[in-house]
Design a protein around this nucleic acid. Structure first.
Lengths: 172, 172
DNA sequence: TCATTAGTTCATAATTTACAGAACTAATTT
DNA sequence: AAATTAGTTCTGTAAATTATGAACTAATGA
């Protein structure tokens, strides 16, 4: 364990009031969120980094803080951060006179995440439409059931913009 | 390659008109759907079995037909079918005087699949609510953004039943 | 000029997974 | 009683995944 807390004499923008110690609930939640995101196709370490940036009291963390908080090697940290940068899940800020990068969850992340889930459903729907085209069932009942699902997905996609508008109105 | 087409003299319920040969488009679609379902956490072979049962001209296929059509071993077939039975994605019928089981995609599968996607979002939302509870951010803007997402997910969940009703009405 | 910082890249080790093949079972048929 | 059918279960393994540690780079600081 290394002491990382430094007392810089001037501290303009970086919110260094909080230190990095995580409560047990925070650690627990990082793991649960991590497993959730593993199931969404993220590598374990990548998923934990997302979790840490999400539950940490500090919104922005440095490379070393992440590496130490999660007890993962520098290479794993490097790999995870670049992964998340490339996929647009995180971003970083810098401060003049400080070589470190401060990583945080991208603010647009939530809307994007939902957008992606919808696009995923849309892709599935495209596949299912092709299924109807290529298969040749004797009984029309099977196609009818599949058509129902496709139709509902299309309906949902159509209604989504107005749903968002309604939601925005509902919370003024 | 083995000849599997048998000409039973009486053929009451089983739709044996079609044989099992798959077109190139069908094979292609099995792979694409397979990859899609791999990304949803299914094992490759399991995902291919789902794909086959989806795109096949025959709605119901036997163990051996599946094994041969996909060129996977009996153990892989057994494992895949039991997996899919346990998770409720497929079911089977039997016919008296025939020891084979005829596997097909569960008819409720589409609604269930959508239901599951929604439950997944709901679980994520639960995690994010806990995130707000355990973390202690200086700047309220971060919590506000997360709250927006949570709020929209809750709204969507509330509206879902009425959306389904509206959709049903819209297609009479 | 030497040391330190903030990472990156590479080779490799440790797991994990996903399947094949063979041996097995339990029921049915010959 | 022997053979066949319709699978299941077990063992081994090839391949893929994931992370580590060490060596490296490029910039800054003493």
């Amino acid at each position: 364990m290394k002491l990382t807390t430094t007392f810089a004499s001037f501290n303009l923008c970086k919110e260094k009031t909080k230190d990095m110690t995580l409560s047990n609930e925070q650690r627990q939640l990082i793991e649960e969120f991590g497993i959730y995101q593993e199931n969404n196709g993220f590598q374990p370490a990548v998923a934990r980094v997302m979790g840490l940036l999400l539950v940490s009291d500090r919104a922005e963390l440095t490379f070393d803080e992440i590496s130490e908080a999660l007890n993962i090697s520098k290479s794993a940290t490097s790999n995870a951060l670049n992964m998340l940068l490339n996929t647009g899940h995180i971003e970083y800020t810098t401060f003049s006179g400080d070589r470190k990068r401060y990583f945080r969850i991208k603010s647009s992340n939530w809307r994007d995440l939902f957008e992606k889930k919808m696009q995923d459903l849309s892709y599935l729907n495209g596949l299912l439409k092709r299924v109807l085209e290529v298969r040749n069932r004797e009984l029309p009942i099977y196609d009818a059931k599949l058509n129902d699902f496709i139709s509902f997905m299309d309906y949902l996609k159509d209604r989504m913009p107005s749903l968002i508008t309604e939601w925005e109105k509902s919370r003024t």
